[in-house]
Every structure is written in C-alpha cells, then in structure tokens.
C-alpha cells in the first residue's frame, strides 16, 4: 500500500519546507488561505441563514474539510473540470465560484448558479469547470470518467477531479468507474474525502478494507493516503496525480482522511459519535494549522490574517445582499430548462 509521500523535501535553497512553500509564491499561498476562510465563513453563514428560515430544504456542510477542497484544486487550471458531491460547497468555491452567486442559488434566486433550480445539493459552476454537485452518492463518478474520456478524445491537456465521500466507495458506480478509468488510462483524479462517516455508519463498519485507497490496487492505479487536514500534503498528492493524468498515465485514487465537524445534514443529532471525538478533530482545524504554518514560514503575520478575514467578511456581506436582492424565478418558467428546445 502506497503511503503518503508528502512534505519536507529539501528544496533548492536547502530548506526543509513542506511542498507548497516551494511550489507556490506567497501571494498564491495567501489566496489559498483566503479560499479556506471563504469556504468556512460561507458555510457558517449559510447555516445561519438556514436557522433563520431564509434558506429552505437542507444542506450538507464541509466545515473542517477545507484543506481537502482547496489543496486538491491548487494544481488545477481553468480548463480542468471537477465533479462534486452533496457536500460540495467547498469544491465549488475552491474552483473559483463567487460567493454572491452561490448565496443566490441557496436563496432560490434567478442569479444563482443554477437559477434557483438546483439549490445546495446541485450547486455547479460550469464556466469554471465545476460540472456540479450530486445528490446521488457516487453519481458523479461515471460522469467524471466520461468527461475525462471526452478530454482524451478531443486531445485536450486537461484533467477531471472526481470528489466523493467514504460512503461512495461501497457503491457499484465507484468500482465500475475506477475500472473503466484505468483500462482506458483516462485523465481522472479520484478524490475520496474520507470524513469517517456516511450518514451515521462509520467507514470502519461499512468498508471491508482499512483504507479506501487500498481499493486502488484492484484497479491497477496508485492509491495514496493523505492527511486531509494538511493543505500542503493534499496539494502535493493532487499535483502528482494531475501530472500523471496529464502525461497520459491514467488515474490515481487519493484518500484525504478528514472529518466533518457538523452533522450529516440538518436532521443529524450526532448519536453515532462522541463529543470527545468531535472535539479532538476540531482541535485539528485545517485552517488554524495552515495559518500557523504560514506564520512560521514568515508568509503572513496576525495583521495579514486579520486582513484576509476582513476581506472575506466583506465578500460574505455583499454576497448576502446580492442574493436577497436577486429576483425569484417566475412561476410561468416552471418547466424551463427541462429540454433545450421547449416542448409545446
């Protein structure tokens, strides 16, 4: 089994710094931190809006998993694509979506990314390469493989990142998709965000192998286990997998071990896990960890962090205002978008 081969490669300057500090400029690293903050604050505010009754339906929050979304997307280019999950707000923002249009979608408005037809569970940003979150566990896996097949056939230099959770690894679609991506050597990066639980069943109880990444062996692709709360480790694994995919060498399965702080959805009473377990993971906050690391590398100080946070707060406030002001869809447009050419 391949273990995470990450961090602490000696760099040209002879330092012993984690991967991202060699790979990315300070400006890019500050932007990565801003993205993690943006995801965290977006979800906290979405949750608050839900509690206040401004957003209906349900939502699945990825608070605590921000390093996975941001780190995986760091090596991606504009033309690269991703498929996402019901817990997909972070993926969407990491790939470049605007907070304002995401809030507009959650509020069910016309300016939302899906014009208010999809909501949280189907959030997408096709212009930025996000082919959409998916309400069906493992629903995005075959689609990602198909998008990668199109890339190969059209001879494009791009990759598709396929996010899914630990729950998806027991769906048939997972196995069929990994197999096909491997036999056709397609440019896909499969990213399992193992946050420990499906809805309530733990990965330890639901999955016969210890690590989801162990399953890569059955499909003749590298399986990489990563500390999903370590931004640098995630970005490094993603870089290696993307390089391999772009070189035509086929897919990789990355398993980011992480944890969701919140319940599965809004109905969750957390009866399947302990307060102590949650607290232990909250202590491993990926954002604090990255901030502290950046400080020790001399890339930010407390003032710079405060500045980033203030900018995010501003963006959030403006985004909420934008969403509230956006018009709702018209009832007479109920069946619009069912077909490309409307059926009389």
């Amino acid at each position: 089994m391949a273990k995470a081969k990450t961090t602490k490669r000696p760099d040209a300057a002879g330092g012993n710094r984690p991967f991202i500090y060699n790979r990315y400029a300070p400006r890019q690293l500050r932007e990565a931190l801003a993205k993690m903050q943006r995801i965290r604050r977006f979800e906290e505010c979405a949750e608050e809006s839900y509690m206040r009754g401004h957003i209906h339906g349900t939502m699945h929050l990825s608070i605590g998993q921000e390093a996975s979304a941001v780190g995986i997307c760091m090596p991606l280019n504009a033309g690269d694509q991703l498929t996402s999950t019901h817990r997909g707000h972070g993926h969407c923002l990491a790939k470049g979506a605007e907070i304002a249009r995401m809030f507009a979608e959650f509020f069910g408005r016309e300016d939302g990314y899906c014009k208010g037809r999809g909501g949280s569970m189907h959030i997408a940003d096709v212009a930025n390469g996000n082919l959409g979150a998916n309400g069906i566990v493992a629903g995005g896996l075959p689609i990602a493989v198909g998008a990668a097949l199109a890339i190969k056939k059209l001879k494009k230099p791009n990759v598709v990142v396929c996010f899914f959770g630990d729950g998806a690894n027991n769906e048939g679609a997972f196995h069929e998709s990994l197999n096909m991506a491997s036999i056709w050597k397609l440019p896909v990066v499969f990213v399992c965000e193992n946050n420990g639980y499906g809805m309530s069943m733990s990965a330890a109880r639901s999955t016969a192998v210890e690590n989801v990444a162990d399953r890569a062996a059955a499909y003749a692709m590298p399986g990489v286990i990563v500390d999903g709360n370590d931004l640098s480790a995630v970005a490094e694994a993603s870089q290696i997998a993307c390089d391999r995919a772009r070189a035509g060498d086929g897919p990789t399965l990355i398993e980011n071990k992480t944890y969701r702080w919140r319940g599965h959805s809004k109905s969750d009473r957390n009866r399947y896990r302990t307060k102590e377990e949650i607290e232990a993971w909250v202590a491993k906050d990926p954002i604090i960890r990255f901030q502290d690391e950046m400080k020790s590398q001399g890339i930010v100080d407390d003032a710079a962090i405060a500045e980033i946070r203030a900018a995010v707060e501003q963006e959030i406030e403006a985004g909420l205002e934008f969403a509230k002001a956006s018009p709702p869809p018209r009832i007479e447009d109920l069946t619009r978008f069912v077909y490309t050419d409307p059926i009389p």
Binding site: L141, K153, S177
Partner: peptide, 9 residues
C-alpha cells in the same frame, strides 16, 4: 454514466 459524462464533455 460515462456516456453522460462524455456528452457533457
């Protein structure tokens, strides 16, 4: 699903 994804692509 691969066919669907290829169509999207």
């Amino acid at each position: 699903g691969v066919a669907v994804g290829a169509a999207l692509g």
